[in-house]
Amino acid sequence: MSTSVTFSIDDLEQTAHVGACLAKAIAPHWESGVILYLSGDLGAGKTTLSRYILRTLGHQGNVKSPTYTLVEPYELEAGNVYHFDLYRLADPEELEFMGVRDYFGEKCICLIEWAEKGANYLASADLAITLELGEKRSCTIGATSKRGETIVEVCRRNKELA
């Protein structure tokens, strides 16, 4: 699938806009579950984007990086959000021992940073989000499932309205 949309994210305000756009597009699919893979270099903004997604979905408290815990759970009114950071994962098999498959299901949104370190232990993504540093920072949201295509189309429409 090749459906994607790219946003410029030169400051926190634009990052917040992308996070809000994503959250609003994802929310109608919460019931069936949504999986997002976030990739990009260290410092590209994966955790910051996740923070804005969580806030738009209704989380009121602090959003901390799950770098050392591997996963931070958030229980919200509509369902659960699990924020993973697999950067420090030594062996993908560790995910099996922690019961990672239990996190993927209905009424769950999974935000997974450094998903490539999870090998074959992760469920397939609906969206592949790539954050890029450089002269111009950008965030590309790509669909990797039918559900993802629907979400990307909503993001594209919201981008055009902004």
Rank of each mutant, 00 (worst) to 15 (best):
T3Y: 05
G148N: 04
V71P: 02
I53D: 01
A162I: 11
S32Y: 11
L76F: 07
L42S: 07
S4G: 10
A27D: 13
G61S: 15
E77N: 13
G79I: 12
M1E: 11
F104H: 04
T144C: 08
L70D: 00
E116N: 09
P73Y: 11
L133A: 06
L38K: 01
Y121R: 04
G40M: 02
V34W: 06
Y52P: 00
G40R: 04
Y103R: 12
A16G: 02
I53R: 06
L57V: 12
A90N: 12
R137H: 08
L42G: 05
A78E: 14
S124G: 12
L42A: 05
L12A: 13
W30V: 14
L86I: 05
V152T: 06
P66S: 08
I112Y: 00
H83K: 07
G142I: 06
T15R: 02
I109C: 13
S32A: 15
R88G: 05
N120E: 14
G33V: 10
I53Y: 09
L76W: 08
A123L: 05
T67N: 00
A143T: 06
A143S: 06
K146S: 14
C155L: 07
F97I: 00
K46D: 03
L38F: 13
R156C: 00
K159G: 01
T144K: 14
T130N: 10
T150D: 14
L131G: 00
L89E: 03
T6E: 09
I53S: 02
I112E: 00
G148P: 03
A128R: 12
T6M: 03
L22Q: 03
E77T: 14
T15H: 06
V5C: 06
E153S: 13
C108S: 15
E106A: 15
C155E: 02
E106F: 10
G148K: 01
E135N: 14
S145H: 05
Y82M: 07
T47A: 05
R51L: 11
H83M: 05
I53Q: 03
D41W: 05
A90D: 12
G45W: 02
S8H: 11
T6I: 05
T3R: 13
E135F: 09
V34D: 01
G19E: 02
V63D: 06
T3C: 11
A162F: 13
